[in-house]
Amino acid sequence: MIKYTLRRLLLMIPVILGITFLVFFILLASPGNVAQMVLGPEATAEDIAMKEHDLGLDQPIVVQYIKYMWNALHGDFGTSWFQNFNVMEEFSHRIPYTLSLGFLAIGWACVLGIPIGIIAAVRHNHMTDYVVTFFSLLLSSAPAFWLGMMYQLFFAQKLGWLPASGVGSFKYYILPSLSLGGGILASNARTTRTWLLDVIRSDYVRTARAKGNKESTVIVKHALRNSLLPVITQIGVSFSIIMGGSVITETVYAFPGIGSFLINAVKTKDIPIVMACIVVVAVIVGLTNLVVDLLYAVVDPRVQLGSKKG
């Protein structure tokens, strides 16, 4: 397993290089002179040329890229072009929010989603199943911003139980993480339900019953472990979705994470910020997927990572 992990980590490097170069290139190549956008419409030609030189924009793209990545490797992501601060500093303030929001969202999705899926599978073809399927369809079809606003209107404005925006104590995290995790919750429930239904009908579950196990033991100990395997994979995929979806949720709830950070930077072509966000997100997603794959191997003994046999 160690060898496999190392190999995967090494493979992440070309992936990250590829992504960052692509983004860098697209940002620079798209229309709109950055120096001009920074200085505003009254800037003279000399001003613009000077600014371009300051920002290093007068060099070929590849050179700029290499310079940038070299600095990044040393932890220096530069200064924002439009706003007057050091990117890394701002970033390090914001990333914990997005990460905690993301993990909390996935937390809800698992803690609520999986049991709901189990209940629906066990009570298959009864009313419970229909109700559960209905609500999970509703949640997964609802767009994130709509869901977010509905929560705000209902829980914050109407009932006054939870705050509508901003950060602070734990209660500020509840609504944003629920609206972010809503879709994932639904798909977890559906996947758990589908796989569990499948597994419940399998022979070894029947064997477990034939041995004299309690039904709950059959479900939890025998059936669930087997049906959770695809759910684990799904969670890995969901994490990438959540990192991206946090943009909308963070905007609706005025949550100071890197989602809103990134989207504003893209609009203004503030490359230092965009690159920093992309690099970090790529690394996080890559690591998460690696962890999920390792977890998969731990849970399912049939899975062999890489090729063990010489």
């Binding site: 064997t207 025998h222 472990r225």
Partner: peptide
């Protein structure tokens, strides 16, 4: 009871 198909009668992750 001994079931028909040994391939699927055993829990694969236990």
């Amino acid at each position: 009871m001994i079931f028909q198909d040994p391939m699927t009668s055993l829990n694969p992750v236990m």
